[in-house]
Design a protein around this nucleic acid. Sequence first.
DNA 1: GTATCTGCAAAACATTTGCAATTCT
DNA 2: AGAATTGCAAATGTTTTGCAGATAC
Lengths: 140, 140
Amino acid sequence: MDQFNETHTAKILKEHGVKPSYQRMKIYNYLMTKKNHPVVDTIYNALVSEIPTLSKTTVYNTLNIFKEKNLIQTVTIEDNELRYDANITKHGHFKCVKCNSVTDFKINIDNLTESDNIKNFDIQTYNINYTGVCDRCQKN
Amino acid sequence: MDQFNETHTAKILKEHGVKPSYQRMKIYNYLMTKKNHPVVDTIYNALVSEIPTLSKTTVYNTLNIFKEKNLIQTVTIEDNELRYDANITKHGHFKCVKCNSVTDFKINIDNLTESDNIKNFDIQTYNINYTGVCDRCQKN
DNA sequence: GTATCTGCAAAACATTTGCAATTCT
DNA sequence: AGAATTGCAAATGTTTTGCAGATAC
């Protein structure tokens, strides 16, 4: 990790009340740069070569802290597959059933009309997930 | 289960290529009549008093068969909490953070405008989940 | 009587917890 | 040194699998 990123990442973590340890910075940096909505195993396997002593417990603990402090959000598109996303803006997720990639997309839910039975409900969060075939896989 | 339901449920299962055993009919009937988006444990606990020999394995196996045959769908609103829904029409789910109830709502995604990066993607399924406070809980 | 279905027990996974060792300041 | 963090090992919780006995046609 170059000096700029280390400083930049440390700053973001501190702003959210998370002490920037080496492991935490590596994990946050991984999420920020890869944008690949990884599962825990993917993160662990990607970083263990660089940090040979890394344990999965630390990955779990770190991700839980990040989520608590609103540094990241979790994404569940497919059952029993918890993914992590450093993009905390509101957006949808598209998972391609052929290549398994997850693509972010922007949405405007203001145009969405729900049925009357929930018209007085106070909506606090939403998750919009699509599955299908991405454009790259349609050509293959 | 009265004779009408037994006959009716058996018919639906057969139409989907599932042999209507006693346990399968009870589980499908539970989902159809309760419409409560239960987790496996809820189904098991509700039925074990009526079917003392019931095992959780059978509940799991049965739900997996139902899903394979498109008799039901799974719903994941909150991480690591897999719920089952006999309503296989396309609809959204609202989970109240106070009373934990899940409410179905109708939605028309044609009004949703997604960003251009997925405009050529072939969307096959979608899941729309909200969390918030339902109208009943707002009054309490 | 042969196929299928059920349900126990064990296995397989994913995640959390307890705690001792390590690291940072 | 003192406080926080890490990571091993064990515990927990959920879902799947192997298989023997029960059930259905």
